[in-house]
Design a protein around this nucleic acid. Structure first.
Length: 274
DNA sequence: ATGGTGGCTGTGCCA
C-alpha cells in the first residue's frame, strides 16, 4: 500500500458522484447547476463527446470545480471534476496502461490518500457483435489493471458507467433482457471479478430493487420506469468498513433535455479533507 | 411494429 496514511490518520466526510452526461457540451449548464446544489467532492463524468480543448473550464470554475480531462471527438470521453478546495490531484492516469485503445474511457487520480478511478465501459451493442468481443477484451484488461491499482491503494473508489446490470434485480424486465448485452453471464462475471478484488458495489448493497440509473430515451422509458442499474460506485473494503450511503439522484433525469443517465452519489469517510 | 429518441456528424454511427 504505497499511499496508505498512518493508522491514526483522520478520515473526513467525502462525497463522490458518477454521471454519464451524454455530451458535456449539451449538459454543461445542468452539470453546473447540479454541482452548485450537491457540492460533491469529486465527480466522474462519462460520455463527454468532446475534445479536451472544447471543454468550458471557466463555467466549471465558476461553479467551484476544476477538471481532469480525457476526451475525444464525437464519442466516449471521461473526466474527473474536483472541488477547488481539495488538495491538488496526483498520479493522474489516463487510459488502461499496456492496453492499446483508441477510445478514451478511463481517467484516474489520487486526492491525498484516496485513489479515484473513473471509467466508461464499452457498451458492446449485442452479443454477436465485434463490439462485444472488444468489450470483453477491454474488461479483461481493466480487471487486470484494477488488481494492480487495488494492491497499491487501500482507499480506492471506482466510479463509472459500467454498461453492466449486475443482477436481474437491476433490470426492469429480466426475462426480456436475459442473455442480452448489459446482462449476459460473461459481462456479469467481469463485474464479479472486480468485486473479488476487494470492492463493494455500494448502491447494489443498499438500494432496493428497481434503483435504476439509466432509462432509454425511446418509448418513454423514464416515465414508465423501464430502466437498468448500470452506473456504479465501487469502494474498497477499507472505505466500506466505515459509515457511508449511496443513492441515485433521479432529479436531473426529469429535467428538460436530460441525459439518459441519472447521477449516483456516494457519501462516506476518506483519508483526505473533502 | 427488430420499432422508438438523442447527440454528433455529414446523408450514417453509436447508444
Amino acid at each position: 500500500m504505497t499511499d496508505t496514511p498512518s493508522p491514526a490518520a483522520a478520515h473526513a466526510p467525502f462525497s463522490i458522484a458518477s454521471w454519464n452526461v451524454n455530451s458535456l457540451n449539451v449538459r454543461l449548464p445542468q452539470v453546473c447547476d447540479w454541482l452548485a446544489t450537491e457540492r460533491p467532492s469529486v465527480v466522474g463524468l462519462q460520455e463527454l463527446k468532446q475534445v479536451n480543448e472544447a471543454v468550458n473550464l471557466d463555467a466549471l470554475a465558476a461553479a467551484g470545480y476544476r477538471a481532469l480531462l480525457n476526451g475525444q471527438k464525437t464519442y466516449n470521453g471521461v473526466a474527473l471534476l474536483y472541488r477547488q478546495d481539495l488538495p491538488e490531484p496526483t498520479d493522474v492516469c489516463v487510459d488502461i496502461p499496456q492496453f492499446d485503445d483508441p477510445q478514451r474511457r478511463v481517467i484516474a487520480a489520487s486526492f491525498g490518500g484516496l485513489r479515484v478511478i473513473n471509467a466508461y465501459v464499452v457498451n458492446g451493442e449485442a452479443l454477436d457483435s465485434d463490439k462485444f468481443a472488444y468489450k470483453l477484451r477491454w474488461l479483461a484488461a481493466f480487471v487486470d489493471w484494477l488488481r494492480a491499482e487495488r494492491a497499491a491503494h487501500e482507499h480506492l473508489v471506482l466510479t463509472g458507467d459500467f454498461n453492466i446490470a449486475p443482477t436481474d434485480a437491476d433490470v426492469y424486465d429480466p426475462a426480456a433482457w436475459q442473455n442480452s448485452v448489459l446482462c449476459s453471464p460473461a459481462e456479469r462475471q467481469a463485474f464479479n471479478d472486480l468485486l473479488a478484488l476487494g470492492l463493494v458495489d455500494t448502491l447494489g448493497r443498499t438500494a432496493p430493487p428497481g434503483s435504476f440509473t439509466w432509462w432509454d430515451y425511446r418509448a418513454a422509458g423514464f416515465r414508465r420506469n423501464l430502466g437498468l442499474r448500470i452506473d456504479h460506485i465501487l469502494v474498497s473494503d477499507a472505505l466500506a468498513a466505515q459509515a457511508w450511503t449511496c443513492r441515485v439522484d433521479k432529479t436531473p433525469r426529469g429535467w428538460e433535455r436530460p441525459s439518459d443517465h441519472a447521477p449516483v452519489i456516494w457519501q462516506g469517510m476518506a483519508p483526505v479533507p473533502g
